[in-house]
């Protein structure tokens, strides 16, 4: 009862209330409160994530599993970031309230927390994403084969879009007069046309499909037909 029915009841009631609130302006303020509640619980979920991180890595270290030293680095950097941020180390007070030492923004320029973001998190995550350029190129080289009309369309479009955003593309079709009747054949123009027409058409259909999928899945959850989030396999 408490483990299965109460969660189903909470999901259903909250969901129905938030949907109904859209039709009653007097409930909209309460609906906004619930959206904030969601944000608060999501922020508390970060604490759960941190606790889980500690649990996993402390076990790895205590068991001396392979790569335990990396777990030490994970926990060390986690603890430093947390301490620097929560204690607002090096954060000057808000100029409007200089007698309140905790009033400054943790993200302010020149703070230790901003240093961690600017010189550790940002370069590391940006470089990780940048590296995907090599792997996408490599995967494309291996996998792309113009075997049929669909593959030719995909390959050709990707090629035009890539060229359309480089100087090579401009030079390649730069001889076509920009104000003439065939200006649409210039690579950069073609690239824009593909994005505005063909890509928009495909994206719209995909977005409509996603919206319908989300609406039906949400309804299934709210009506208690989909209980997978409760675990137990049904």
């Amino acid at each position: 009862m408490l483990k299965r029915n109460v969660p189903l009841l909470i999901t259903g009631l909250i969901g129905v209330f938030l949907i109904v609130a859209n039709f009653f302006p007097s409930l909209s303020a309460m609906s906004e409160d619930f959206t904030v509640f969601f944000g608060i619980i999501a922020a508390m979920a970060f604490v759960l994530g941190g606790g889980s991180l500690l649990k996993v890595h402390l076990k790895k270290i205590s068991d001396r599993n392979a790569g335990w030293a990396y777990s030490l680095i994970v926990l060390g950097t986690f603890a430093i970031t947390l301490a620097v941020g929560l204690l607002k180390i090096g954060v000057p007070p808000n100029p409007g309230f200089p007698d309140k030492p905790w009033s400054g923004s943790v993200n302010a320029d020149g703070t230790a927390f901003e240093w961690i973001y600017e010189y550790a998190l940002k370069p590391l995550s940006a470089t990780m994403f940048a590296m995907l350029a090599f792997y996408i190129a490599s995967a494309a080289f291996r996998a792309f084969r113009a075997k049929n009309i669909e593959a030719i369309l995909l390959l050709g479009t990707a090629f035009i879009i890539l060229l359309g955003r480089t100087f090579a593309g401009y030079y390649l079709t730069g001889w076509i007069p920009i104000d003439g009747p065939f200006s649409g054949l210039r690579i950069e123009e073609l690239s824009v046309y593909i994005m505005q027409v063909f890509n928009t058409a495909g994206s719209r259909a995909i977005i409509i499909g996603i919206a319908l999928g989300i609406a039906s899945t949400s309804l299934k959850i709210l009506m208690g037909l989909d209980r997978s989030y409760l675990g137990g396999g049904n």
Binding site: V36, G39, I40, A42, A43, M44, F46, V47, G49, G50, L53, G67, Y70, S71, I73, V74, L75, G76, T77, F78, A79, I80, T81, L82, G85, L86, V106, F113, I116, Y117, A120, L121, L124, S125, M128
Partner: peptide, 29 residues
Amino acid sequence: YKIAESVVVGVSAGYAMVIGFWDMLVPNL
């Protein structure tokens, strides 16, 4: 690389918690 990867995990987890605390929990809760 693994050291850098571990730093990403640790720092991003800590960063998300700190932002969640100061930007969400303190003003809104």
